[in-house]
């Protein structure tokens, strides 16, 4: 089956998913409120307790971390959306149509980029309110947002696979909580790398969520001085994050498509 068909069919499915935002705007409200809540909570709760260590303010340090955490969490929507389709039987309709076998997945992961764009915009505005600033050029900042979206897109393919495997939306939500929560908290998103020790520090250092956060901080100009470690992941965070994104996509796109072909509705 051809890639152009996967894209054109995928676009039809993405449009279908986006109509849901229009019909059930409540979903969007929660998607957008939780990042605002995170920015405000962390900025004012931990703002005084954690010192980024390079002379910057914690709020300045925090916002890129919240960006990373939120877009990674956004992947849950991909898994939940697919699990819902499976539960409702519409996957059988799709599977009986002469459409690309990748289209439902391409469509879902694509429409979820829209969620992430919206939540990044809202978070950036909230960030500006708590005195976070873009201190380098606009192009660098755009590159930062683009990197966040690329990594989030890759992660959403993992959750797509999970969404096809598990029996219900609830299980997707719980599963993603169990995986994504540690992944984002065992990173430099909220606590600087220097405050971790031993084996935990190694994990945090090489965690792609850390490199994503580090890269965003650098691109938004929210960090001063040397990178917090000599590890490749911290010295070249953009490259390291892109490598991870590529690996995840290369593994999970074929895995998910194979699962889609095998699966049947419940």
């Amino acid at each position: 089956m051809s890639a152009p068909q996967a894209l054109s069919d995928g676009w039809v499915v993405a449009q279908r998913n986006l109509i849901k935002i229009k019909r059930v705007p409540e979903v969007l409200v929660f998607v957008l409120i939780s990042p605002i809540m995170f920015v405000l909570l962390f900025a004012y709760v931990f703002g005084g307790a954690i010192d980024p260590g390079d002379g910057t303010e914690y709020k300045e340090f925090l916002v890129a971390g919240i960006f990373a955490q939120t877009v990674v969490f956004g992947a849950t929507f991909t898994g939940a959306g697919l699990a819902e389709d499976m539960q409702k039987g519409i996957i059988d309709r799709f599977r009986s149509l002469p459409m690309s076998r990748a289209a439902v997945l391409v469509g879902r992961t694509t429409s979820d980029v829209v969620y992430n764009v919206l939540s990044l915009m809202i978070m950036a505005l909230t960030g500006l309110l708590v005195s976070w600033r873009i201190r380098d050029g606009v192009l660098e900042a755009l590159a930062g947002f683009a990197l966040l979206l690329v990594f989030a897109y890759a992660i959403s393919w993992i959750m797509a696979f999970v969404g096809l495997l598990v029996p219900s939306v609830d299980v997707v939500n719980n599963a993603s909580f169990v995986v994504i929560f540690p992944l984002t908290f065992l990173s430099n998103a909220f606590v600087p790398l220097k405050d971790f020790d031993g084996i935990l520090k190694r994990f945090v250092e090489w965690n792609p969520v850390s490199s994503l956060t580090q890269a965003s901080r650098e691109l938004f100009g929210n960090t001063v001085g040397e990178p917090p470690s000599d590890a490749f992941s911290m010295q070249h965070p953009v490259v390291y994050t892109l490598i991870w994104s590529a690996i995840i996509v290369a593994v999970f796109v074929p895995l998910s498509v194979r699962q889609f072909k095998r699966t049947t509705s419940r």
Partner: peptide
């Protein structure tokens, strides 16, 4: 199908 596979939204 047995379960009407329409998208309710």
């Amino acid at each position: 199908g047995q379960y009407a596979a329409v998208d309710e939204y």
